[in-house]
Design a protein around this nucleic acid. Sequence first.
DNA 1: AGCGTAGGGATTGTTCAACAATCCTGCAAT
DNA 2: ATTGCAGGATTGTTGAACAATCCCTACGCT
Lengths: 229, 229
Amino acid sequence: MTALDPAVDSLARARRQFAWTSTAERVADAVREEVVEGRLLPGARLPEQRLCTALGVSRNTVREAMSQLVAERVLMREPHRGVFVARPDREAVRDVYRARRLIEPAAVRAGEAADDTRVAAVRRAVDEGRDAAENGRWDDLASANQHFHRALVALAGSPRLDQQMALLLAEMRLVFHRMPGVREFHEPYLTQNARICALLEAGERDAAADAVAEYLRAAEEHLLRDYPS
Amino acid sequence: MTALDPAVDSLARARRQFAWTSTAERVADAVREEVVEGRLLPGARLPEQRLCTALGVSRNTVREAMSQLVAERVLMREPHRGVFVARPDREAVRDVYRARRLIEPAAVRAGEAADDTRVAAVRRAVDEGRDAAENGRWDDLASANQHFHRALVALAGSPRLDQQMALLLAEMRLVFHRMPGVREFHEPYLTQNARICALLEAGERDAAADAVAEYLRAAEEHLLRDYPS
DNA sequence: AGCGTAGGGATTGTTCAACAATCCTGCAAT
DNA sequence: ATTGCAGGATTGTTGAACAATCCCTACGCT
């Protein structure tokens, strides 16, 4: 038989893609991590040379990684000046929320793939958030909140939407890093998260979707109240 | 005053970004065009060397452009083997439609920015499609259809959603290029487009959104009926 | 002081040439 | 028919180079 078993070579191909990561990808991951965790603040400049020596890779490679991150809106490129950590302005915040208000409630309402595991993931994010808040670990609370929203979108069961949502949430982290006094920003939303989760578990998806929409509207206003520039 | 007028240098910055395009970007645009127009068919291999000589740029630049297109799902990279024009499988089609069914009706229903100009853009796409169909220009009909859906999403007024939709539609073009007998695939949807547009113009956004959802469901089934692999 | 202007240094955008690692092909051997 | 193994081609990555552009400063002019 000259034709291989189709499942076999499909697996082989998948494995190659899974096991292998290019250097540029790893560089991009490293820098994205630094940015998302707030160790590189919005507006900071990233000179190529410095990254080369810091990461021990060639300039061409960091260049490729930077382009990737620029496409993700994590960095911003100013031609012939360099790349900077993105500094989302008020309009960016409005647009991110515009997109989120459209996607998240729709994902909850449609919920094409709202099986038990995915609802459980929402519940887990809620618990994670409450736990973090009780112990005053505000950074973990922010992370938990992101997990919550990611889990909401995951109810739609679409990898492409999940990816898009990951981009929007990464941008949100930049937004938070520009905010003064974000440490307890997420705290008031804990009870809302819990309520939404309860509605979901009760199968009341329309009500849950409405709650999400209202949540997002309030959060946007709350954020924009004293967001700079 | 050492600080420039903020509006002025913001403009200067914007202009720089607008007027300037890196070589890699232009290469990416050129290749994307070839792929989207169907002159490079799904599965085709793109050896770096060939692109270098064809476009007169260096291999590094080509590489950067390819990475960009891989991220857009226009191309697919198999490590150490090369980049190929993406060949969306049935699961990809299902997922693209999953995302579209979530985004498009929601954009029509919410329509945060559904002003007259944007509704007019929808109308224009419908007319463009009818015109193309009457003259049997099937390629233009396909384009018009994409303009129609792009205009629907534009009703939400979110650049980020527009961009996401552009990616999904580019992937759809690849899907169509894999289909046997697509020449008149879009024809039956002309009347639906017109109906949706009429509903929009009448301000009946909920009805329009439902029609879009139904449209997408039918189109997905129609496509998957005899889609390969 | 304020403004325009010419270096000079640093950084970016892009190319070229090289090398190791990996993949594909053909062929010999079992 | 399958395995093992050269040889060649392609990819992944590096390093160095060069022009173009930007930033800063010093200088000169009003």
